[in-house]
Amino acid sequence: MFTALSEWSIWLVPALLGLIPLYGYWKKVPVFETFVEGAEEGLRLAWRILPYSLAIFVAVGIFRDSGAFLMLTNGLRYPLEATGVPGVVIPLMLVRPISGNASLALLADVLRVHGPDSLAGRLASTVQGSTDTTFYILSIYFGSVGIRKFSYALPVGLLGDLAGMVGSVIICRWFFG
């Protein structure tokens, strides 16, 4: 069933792309002009999120390249390994809520060094797939509409990620032994 789903997801984009304009034409929508009008709105949105991604990229970069990140990882290694988390997955877990590209790079590194079929490789894959860049998404999404008070969205998202990671560890250990 899952392989069928991934097969199907490849067809999603072409299907949408065929279906929506044809249906629009049938409903007498001026498809070209409407597309251009919508595209202009998209361009404005992409431009508006630039300052937010810039702020986050720089902060994450400084934290990582200064060596502060390595210190944090080393500090957490012993207590986490005692609870059954492979040490090599810790950097990925720490970075995951903040930067999607950085965590993807860390996943690639774990897969390359330890192999995709090791416990570390499977756990890293599960963590990457089941959680998201919460911190980044919130600042971009709220930033794009000018919201500065996030209410309770950040703790909810980060605790959700934490639950996903704890769940990943338990499920992977149980599933892959």
């Binding site: 409903k27 597309f35 251009v36 998209g42 630039l50 990229f57 970069g61």
Partner: peptide, 26 residues
């Protein structure tokens, strides 16, 4: 990196909001 991301995103974003506008108007 941030500017490159914005440029990458601008294209795909403009594309999907364009398609969405058609879906919405129909």
């Amino acid at each position: 990196g941030a500017v490159e991301l914005a440029i990458d995103l601008a294209g795909i974003m403009a594309f999907w909001t364009g398609i969405m506008r058609i879906a919405e108007r129909s």
